[in-house]
Computed example of a mutant assay.
Amino acid sequence: MSEPLTPDLPEDEALAAEHALGVLTAAERAAAELRMARDPAFAAHVDAWRERLAPMLAALPSVSAPVGLWPRIERALPANDNAGASVKLWRGLAMGGISVAAASLVAVIVLAVRPPQVVTPPQPDFAQLLNARLDTSGGQHLFVAAYDPVRKKLIVTSLVTPGADPAHVHELWLIPADGKARSLGLIEPGTSKTLPVPAGLSALAKEGASIAVSVEPPGGSKADGPSGPVAAIGKLARI
């Protein structure tokens, strides 16, 4: 059988997809963002991939913040230190017999000169994501995968040109430390997909486990593992 996976996507397109998915290293991301500022065409590629990935990210359920997180943040804000000082000031003014009007004037002055306090809501912890670049044996980069162990979701982006091999499908596999492949479903060429990882497999999706893609007949493998050639494979790792 002829080689079914020869992506026609340029290197710029693949880099834009990796940037939009958030799987670049810190140095690679900095270089990509510098290029976006200088190269409008590359920036347009990144925006296009972000738009393509938006439905996938919207499908991920939200995760509630740990109990007591916001009170700890509020106590750590400088504004609360100022608030405590203001309470002491008011009490001192009252004890000293200062008039209510004078105290109000002092409060207005304090509020006027106090710099605004900006409170940023908690952001998703992307550091916990496990990422994998799936390459062929010849080093061709065909897929990008990211696993969220909290939501137990695998996000996969195919960089394969749609229609390259209409007679076959691409099946995703999780290969943990025991070496046995577990099917995670199918992915269409040139698309992004969010796949729920079953509870029985989520414990196996750890750093060092492999994600692979095999070329299968329509409907996927009927065997207990890949029945066709493994086209691309990569290991889950932290950025």
Rank of each mutant, 00 (worst) to 15 (best):
T120M: 14
R114K: 15
V108M: 15
I98R: 05
E3N: 14
H45F: 00
N82P: 03
I187A: 02
A132T: 02
S99P: 02
G219P: 01
L204M: 03
L105F: 11
A30C: 09
A65W: 11
P218E: 04
A145D: 05
G92Y: 04
A30E: 15
N80F: 10
A212H: 01
A232P: 09
R151H: 06
G200Q: 14
R35I: 12
S86E: 05
A199M: 14
G225R: 09
A26G: 09
R75H: 11
G185L: 06
L111T: 03
S2Y: 05
H141M: 07
T25P: 04
A107R: 00
L236G: 05
A112N: 13
T157G: 02
V119Y: 15
G163E: 14
L130E: 02
P116H: 12
V156C: 08
A232F: 10
P196C: 05
P78E: 12
M36Y: 09
A85P: 01
L89F: 14
E216S: 00
G228Y: 05
A212F: 01
A32Y: 06
L57A: 13
E74A: 15
S62R: 10
L159H: 07
R151Y: 04
T136L: 02
M95E: 13
A41L: 11
D47C: 06
K235A: 11
S210D: 13
Q128N: 07
S183N: 12
S183K: 11
W173E: 01
L5D: 01
S64P: 00
D47A: 15
D81F: 04
A31S: 15
G185A: 12
L93Y: 01
I73D: 06
V63C: 03
L89Q: 12
L5I: 09
A17F: 13
R182Q: 13
L130T: 02
L53N: 11
L134G: 00
L21K: 00
V160M: 12
F126D: 14
L77S: 12
M1R: 15
S86N: 00
G96T: 04
L134Q: 03
V169A: 04
L111A: 09
P229Y: 09
P121C: 03
L93K: 00
L53Y: 13
L154E: 07
H141E: 09
L129S: 07
S192Y: 01
E171L: 02
A43H: 04
P189W: 07
A181E: 02
S192G: 15
P121A: 07
